Simulated assay, not measured.
Amino acid sequence: MSLIWKIKPFKALSLDELYNLLELRSEVFIVEQNCVYQDIDGKDRKAIHLIGEFEGETVAYCRLFKAGDYFDESSIGRVIVKEKYRDKKWGHDLIREAIKAIKDNFGEEKITISAQLYLKKFYENHGFSQTSEEYLEDGIPHIEMKKA
């Protein structure tokens, strides 16, 4: 069982793909995490979007930015796996695909992320190191992490 990966700039997303990724982001970041925040933040237009589909359903997603569009280095954000599929460990596949996509699309290897604190070990497993003190983002503890 594996995912089908799509990588698309904003303008190449179909209406259905855009709807599905926004629905997934809302389902997890707003409803599941009980966090009221402005998900549609104007940054999607600059990002390339990595979508993981399983049996036609969007189940994994993140958005990728080239250096300077979000942080000084390339970055990965809105990292998400649909709750009912988290036991499949597809989050690891998603991060590996994201790192590869940054290298392939932007020619960059340095990556900065704003990680939810509880995912620190997850990101460390992919070569990221904590580079800031803990801070609150939308009421959730986060840390900045970098991969050199």
Rank of each mutant, 00 (worst) to 15 (best):
K146D: 14
I51M: 01
R45P: 01
A67C: 12
I48A: 05
E73Y: 13
I113S: 01
R86G: 10
L21M: 04
F29P: 14
L50M: 04
Y37D: 09
I4W: 01
K110P: 08
A148P: 12
V79C: 08
S114Y: 04
Q33M: 02
K103L: 03
V81W: 04
A101K: 03
S26T: 15
D87V: 12
F65L: 11
M145E: 03
Y61D: 01
K147Y: 08
G91Q: 06
L50V: 00
V81Y: 03
N105Y: 10
K46A: 09
D16E: 15
E17M: 01
K46Q: 14
L117E: 05
K84C: 14
E134F: 10
S132M: 05
H92V: 11
L21A: 07
L24A: 05
N34L: 13
S114V: 06
A148E: 14
G77L: 13
V36C: 09
G56W: 12
I7C: 03
S75A: 15
Y118R: 13
L24K: 01
S114C: 05
F128M: 08
K147D: 07
T112I: 03
R78L: 06
F128R: 12
D138A: 06
F128C: 08
N34G: 10
I30K: 03
F128I: 06
G56M: 07
I95G: 10
S75T: 06
K103C: 10
L119K: 14
K46M: 12
T112F: 12
A12E: 07
D41C: 09
Q130P: 02
V36G: 14
V81K: 02
E73M: 13
S132C: 06
P9Y: 09
K43C: 12
S129E: 15
I7T: 00
A47P: 12
L24F: 08
Y19I: 11
R45F: 03
K82N: 10
K121A: 14
E27M: 04
E83V: 13
H142Y: 07
E57I: 13
G77M: 04
Y118W: 01
G56N: 04
I4S: 13
E124I: 06
S75E: 00
N125D: 14
D16C: 09
Y118S: 11
C62Y: 10
E27A: 08
K88N: 05
I111E: 04
V28E: 05
H92Y: 12
L3W: 08
K146Y: 03
E53V: 03
A67Q: 13
P141G: 11
R96I: 11
E23H: 15
S114A: 13
K120T: 13
D72P: 15
F122R: 14
L119I: 08
N125P: 10
E17C: 11
H92R: 15
K8T: 11
K146C: 02
Y61Q: 02
D93P: 03
K43V: 10
I40S: 11
G107E: 00
L3T: 07
E137M: 11
A67P: 12
D93F: 07
H92M: 14
K6R: 14
L94C: 04
I143M: 04
R86F: 13
I40E: 00
L21N: 01
K84P: 04
K6F: 07
